[in-house]
Design a protein around this nucleic acid. Structure first.
Length: 286
DNA sequence: AGCATTACCCGCACGC
DNA sequence: TGCGTGCGGGTAATGC
């Protein structure tokens, strides 16, 4: 479900505590694990998982692309929410001391020494969790962090030239750039006034810089607004109220008023302003 | 050979 | 009821 800004928002709430009275995940010691849906676990096996994670302490909480990264005493726990994954922190027992039942679609539970638990809920079962000694085994495949100040416009330009692909599929490719998904890609391309099917090799230095600036602008606004809350999964963010094109087919372009159009690019719903985002005519075959 | 593109797949819920 | 759609990504087949 979430893209970089939603994952960033979730990571921050895990660090700070979701609400007053709910604890941070930092420093928690894991006392028990329950795997309700075996395929949620990428590695290791369900049989190995509980014994291996038990008694480890959460030393750090971070994000890489769309991955939530929990650094434990010995291992790293990577969580990818994919389309419908969600995390919640709640007490193990109610005020009367009775166990609090799990909910429909709860897939994995970590219990902590202080009486709270972390629950991974995932309606569509696409989400995955990895428990690894070396997180680089998975995260090493990811491209640069778009908000990393050390990632320069010229380096971005160079990568665009190396990978000659249509812009939208390329921006969605996590090995090219980590963190963009369907919403923020459409938003960034519109802000940069670039057509999603434009070949990446066609961008000059200025266009590449403009695209990186647009990507950073939409991601930053997404984070500032605590992400977007759409469909039936509500997370409290309100970036959906600032969408320029996503989900707005037929409504006016915020820049020029032309009705937004919805097309399909690589099986993904794609939203553009046909006036602001034009494709140069293809070279004739003759 | 090595990319890039395309089609399809994976559970489930929701709106029309 | 049936059908289209989806904040993601892996795989296999095909194309250049």
């Amino acid at each position: 479900m979430p893209e970089l800004p939603e994952v960033e928002t979730i990571v921050r709430t895990l660090k700070e505590g979701a609400a007053p009275g709910t604890p941070s995940l930092l420093g928690q010691t894991i006392t028990d694990a329950q795997v309700c849906w075996a395929r949620t676990l990428a590695v290791p096996s369900t049989a190995e998982f509980g014994g291996r994670i038990r008694s480890q302490r959460i030393e750090a909480i971070g994000r890489r692309g769309k991955f939530i990264v929990l650094t434990l005493s010995q291992d790293s726990l990577l969580i990818h929410l994919r389309m419908s994954g969600d995390l919640r922190i709640e007490p193990l027992r109610d005020s009367a001391g009775g166990p609090i039942p799990l909910l429909k679609h709860d897939r994995l539970v970590l219990a902590f020494a202080d009486g709270w638990r972390l629950v991974f809920n995932d309606t569509r079962k696409f989400g995955r969790v990895w428990l690894l000694r070396d997180p680089h085994e998975v995260l090493g495949a990811l491209g640069p962090e778009p908000l990393d100040p050390a990632f320069s416009p010229d380096e971005f330009h160079q990568r665009l030239l190396e990978r000659r692909r249509q812009l939208k599929p390329l921006l969605l490719d996590q090995t090219f750039l980590a963190g963009l998904g369907n919403i923020y890609t459409d938003e960034a391309l519109h802000l940069a006034r670039l057509h999603p099917l434009l070949p990446s090799g066609a961008l000059d230095r200025d266009a590449a810089r403009g695209l990186l600036e647009a990507i950073r602008a939409v991601l930053s606004e997404g984070i500032r607004r605590n992400g977007a809350s759409i469909d039936w999964v509500y997370r409290g963010g309100d970036f959906q109220n600032a969408f320029r094109v996503y989900g707005r087919s037929g409504q006016p372009c915020p820049a020029c008023g032309t009705p937004i159009e919805r097309t399909l690019v690589g099986q993904r719903g794609t939203h553009i302003c046909p006036h602001c985002q034009t494709l140069p005519p293809p070279l004739s075959p003759s």
